[in-house]
Simulated assay, not measured.
Amino acid sequence: FKEQAYLLRRYIDINKEDRSKDNSELQALYAVQAFVCSLEHPPNLINAYFQALYDLDLISEDAFIEWRSSTDPQEQTGRGVAITSLRPFFEY
Rank of each mutant, 00 (worst) to 15 (best):
67 W>C: 03
26 L>Y: 11
67 W>N: 06
51 Q>M: 05
56 L>Q: 10
77 T>N: 11
11 Y>H: 10
44 N>V: 02
15 N>Q: 11
91 E>H: 11
49 Y>K: 02
67 W>P: 00
42 P>L: 04
5 A>R: 05
2 K>M: 02
87 R>L: 14
26 L>I: 14
6 Y>A: 12
68 R>T: 06
45 L>G: 01
68 R>W: 12
82 A>I: 00
77 T>D: 11
69 S>E: 15
42 P>G: 05
6 Y>G: 08
3 E>Q: 15
47 N>I: 01
61 E>Y: 01
87 R>M: 14
45 L>K: 03
92 Y>Q: 12
76 Q>E: 14
49 Y>D: 04
40 E>C: 10
71 T>S: 11
56 L>N: 06
86 L>T: 02
90 F>W: 14
55 D>T: 12
62 D>C: 02
64 F>A: 03
88 P>F: 08
59 I>Y: 07
6 Y>N: 07
12 I>Q: 03
22 D>R: 03
14 I>Y: 09
54 Y>I: 01
33 Q>D: 06
13 D>P: 01
66 E>Y: 07
17 E>A: 08
35 F>K: 03
66 E>P: 00
47 N>S: 11
28 A>R: 09
81 V>A: 09
59 I>F: 10
29 L>E: 13
33 Q>M: 08
44 N>P: 00
82 A>N: 04
49 Y>T: 00
85 S>K: 00
78 G>H: 15
42 P>E: 06
79 R>I: 08
36 V>T: 13
18 D>T: 13
2 K>V: 06
5 A>K: 06
63 A>C: 02
47 N>T: 05
90 F>Y: 15
67 W>A: 02
57 D>N: 15
70 S>D: 14
3 E>T: 15
30 Y>F: 15
71 T>F: 06
8 L>H: 08
45 L>S: 02
76 Q>D: 09
67 W>D: 05
41 H>E: 08
61 E>M: 00
69 S>L: 14
49 Y>L: 11
1 F>I: 06
45 L>V: 13
44 N>I: 00
16 K>T: 07
43 P>Y: 01
88 P>T: 06
7 L>P: 01
23 N>R: 07
2 K>F: 04
66 E>M: 09
16 K>E: 10
89 F>S: 09
15 N>F: 07
14 I>L: 10
49 Y>M: 08
14 I>C: 05
32 V>W: 05
53 L>W: 04
33 Q>T: 03
45 L>E: 09
44 N>Q: 04
14 I>R: 15
32 V>M: 07
56 L>Y: 13
79 R>H: 10
24 S>G: 08
3 E>S: 15
72 D>F: 10
27 Q>G: 05
72 D>E: 15
34 A>M: 09
5 A>P: 02
50 F>G: 02
64 F>T: 07
72 D>S: 12
78 G>M: 14
20 S>I: 00
52 A>Y: 04
49 Y>I: 04
85 S>Q: 12
28 A>M: 09
28 A>K: 11
38 S>A: 13
76 Q>V: 14
72 D>M: 09
20 S>M: 06
4 Q>R: 12
74 Q>P: 00
85 S>E: 15
4 Q>V: 12
46 I>P: 00
12 I>T: 07
26 L>C: 12
35 F>S: 05
45 L>N: 01
42 P>Q: 09
83 I>E: 09
68 R>E: 14
65 I>P: 01
34 A>C: 03
6 Y>S: 11
3 E>F: 13
39 L>Y: 14
26 L>Q: 10
57 D>S: 12
1 F>Q: 08
45 L>T: 10
